[in-house]
Design a protein around this nucleic acid. Structure first.
Lengths: 152, 152
DNA sequence: TGAAAGTCTATTAATTCGATATAGATTATA
DNA sequence: TATAATCTATATCGAATTAATAGACTTTCA
C-alpha cells in the first residue's frame, strides 16, 4: 500500500510549481535543488506530467516548466495516476485499469477493496494543489520560520 | 497502492478457514486446491499467520490448520499487516512502522497521507472474518448457486 | 514402521523501482 | 551565428522486492 518515490517526488515538485503559479517557467535544476530530488530522476517525472497535459514546458535557454492549468483544477489523484497507474488496491475495482477477476460476482474481497478504493479516491480526487498551497501557507504562518522546502 | 499476492491469498485462506471454524483442522492441500493457491506458497503464508498467533496448527498425519480465535476477533488489517507490514502509504504516518521524515512538522503531504491511512484502516481494522463470512453467505443465497470457492 | 502431514530454511526467477547515462533538439543571447 | 543552457527521448543498471519452488526435517497415527 505504499506511495512510490516517483509519486512522492511528483507531489513535491507540483506543490513547488503551484506556489509559483503564473510567475513564469521554473527550471528543473531549481526544483531539484530546493526539494532535494535527484535531477535526472525529476526530469523523467516532469516529462510524464507534461505528456499527460498537467505541465507545460519551454525548451531552450531560460526554459523550464509551469502548470498547464490553475492549481485548483489539478488533483493529487491525477498526478499519482499519471506516475503509478491505478490507485485501487486490486485491478478488479479500478476505474482506470479495470481487469475482471475470475469470479467477480461472488467475490467478497472485492467488496472490501471497493470500499477502500473509494475511501482513498475520496481524498485524492478531491484534494487540489490549490488546497495544498493553502496548507503550506497555514503551516508557514503558524511556525513563522523560513522553511526552504514546501514539502518533505 | 497495491495489495500483494501474499495478502490476497492470505485473505482467501482465512475466509476459507473461517467458514470451517470449529470443524477441526483443515489441510493446506485442501485450501490450496479449492482456492487455487500454489501450495508451497500457501505453506509460507500460513506459517507466518501461525507465528503471529492467528492460526493454530497440528503436525503429522491428519494435521492441518485452524483459527486460533473466533472469526469475529480477527480483522483483515491484522492479517495484511502480518504479511505485508505497514498499511500506511508512507512510513511517517505509520503506527506499526513509524519512521520520521526530515521535516515532518511542516510537511503538507504528510497531512494528506495521514487522512488516507485513517480511511484505509477504518475499513481494514473494523472488518472481521465473521463479517466476511456473513457476506459470503449473503452472496451465496442471492445467487443460489454452487460456488466452489468462497473468494477470488 | 511408514505414509501423510506440517516446519524450516534456502534458493531461484521474475519483476519493479530508483536512479543514472547518453545522445540529441531547441532556444536566448552575447 | 556560436554557444551555453535547457528540455527530450530512450536505454541501461543494480538493488530490492515479490512470487514461487525445493528439499531436508519432524511429528503423528494407523
Amino acid at each position: 500500500m505504499k506511495l512510490s518515490k516517483k509519486s512522492d517526488y511528483a507531489l513535491r515538485a507540483m506543490i513547488y510549481l503551484s506556489m509559483q503559479y503564473k510567475k513564469g517557467a521554473i527550471q528543473i535544476k531549481e526544483i531539484s535543488a530546493k526539494e532535494r530530488i535527484p535531477q535526472k530522476f525529476l526530469e523523467n517525472i516532469l516529462l510524464v506530467l507534461r505528456k499527460v497535459g498537467i505541465l507545460n514546458s519551454k525548451i531552450g535557454l531560460k526554459g523550464g516548466y509551469e502548470l498547464a492549468r490553475s492549481p485548483d483544477l489539478i488533483t493529487l489523484g491525477e498526478v499519482i495516476r499519471a506516475l503509478d497507474g491505478a490507485i485501487a488496491p486490486v485491478d478488479c475495482v479500478s476505474k482506470t485499469s479495470y481487469r475482471p477477476c475470475s469470479e467477480e460476482v461472488t467475490c467478497v474481497i472485492r467488496g472490501v477493496m471497493m470500499e477502500i478504493r473509494n475511501a482513498i479516491t475520496d481524498v485524492l480526487d478531491r484534494m487540489t494543489f490549490a488546497d495544498m498551497c493553502s496548507r503550506v501557507k497555514d503551516s508557514m504562518e503558524k511556525r513563522e520560520t523560513g522553511v526552504l522546502t514546501y514539502a518533505i
